[in-house]
Design a protein around this nucleic acid. Structure first.
Length: 151
DNA sequence: GCCAACGTTGGC
DNA sequence: GCCAACGTTGGC
């Protein structure tokens, strides 16, 4: 089993939305590295740190889990979608998504600032300067540390 | 709103 | 295959 961190803008889809809806399809990823993680490495049952980006208090707000492995992201074929990709072909999809289910919302969010100040988390990918990747692998020890800080 | 960092595109 | 120009991300 692997561990991941996935970024979401809370204005678009927050941990509370995930809690309410129970699950979500992770559509709209248009970055090859992130796609490859989803398509090639994310497995059923993998756990996910749910990160809020582009907001007042960036940080990890809870935990989700992979409930469906990669399948073609339908928005790439939808000319009305903001994620439409005219170069994608039906028989050769370019973009994939996974489904993520709700596991828990942290009692206290683990903020980006807090994570930066934790020695034990210093080599997490998401803390690297200029990191823009929306999906990153997370080590087990880091996952457990963050979870511990949130609960 | 600013801007650094990074990814992608396209001319050559 | 190089690289300048451009677009996007995301913290601040």
């Amino acid at each position: 089993m692997k561990y991941w961190l996935m970024k979401s803008e809370p204005d678009v889809f927050s941990i509370d939305d995930l809690k309410t809806k129970k699950k979500t399809s992770w559509d709209g990823v248009r970055n090859y590295q992130a796609r490859n993680f989803m398509r090639d490495e994310m497995k059923l049952g993998d756990l996910v740190l749910y990160y809020h980006s582009n907001c007042e208090e960036p940080g990890v707000y809870g935990i989700g889990k992979v409930i469906k492995e990669a399948y073609p992201d339908h928005t790439q074929f939808d000319s009305k979608s903001e994620y439409y990709d005219p170069k994608a072909k039906k028989d050769e999809p370019r973009w994939f998504m996974v489904d993520v289910g709700f596991v828990e919302k942290f009692k206290v969010p683990v903020t980006l600032n807090q994570m930066k100040s934790e020695k034990a988390l210093s080599d997490m990918l998401v803390l690297r300067k200029g990191n823009r990747l929306s999906i990153t692998p997370v080590e087990k020890k880091h996952f457990e540390k963050v979870q511990g800080l949130g609960n």
